[in-house]
């Protein structure tokens, strides 16, 4: 299981590097979407690994909330570019 989590961390580093290096705001948003999904999946894996119900619930809530935040931000950015 530890190997799987380490591989997940490596997969998480790719969008973080992308967000750091790319200048276009929409590419950064894509990286943010990727990071949001990946972190909540990692929380779920850790919760199952430790058999901790509480962390699992938090992981599921973060999974849905992080995406909602992303959509709000995307709409604000769109309005920004139109004006």
């Amino acid at each position: 299981m530890n190997v799987i989590l380490i591989a997940m961390i490596l997969a998480l580093l790719i969008p973080i590097y992308e967000a750091c290096q790319d200048e276009d705001i929409w590419q950064k948003m894509l990286a943010f979407a990727s990071v949001a999904t990946k972190t909540s999946m990692m929380i779920l894996v850790v919760s199952v690994l430790r058999d901790d119900w509480m962390i699992g619930v938090v992981g599921v809530i973060i999974l849905s909330v992080g995406n909602a935040a992303l959509m709000l931000l995307a709409h604000i950015l769109k309005r920004l570019n139109q004006l």
Binding site: I16, C20, K28, M29, A31, F32, V35, T39, I62, L73
Partner: peptide, 11 residues
């Protein structure tokens, strides 16, 4: 946007 990534990682 990076603040959002930081928030996800912090969580």
């Amino acid at each position: 946007v990076i603040r959002g990534i930081l928030g996800a990682v912090a969580a």
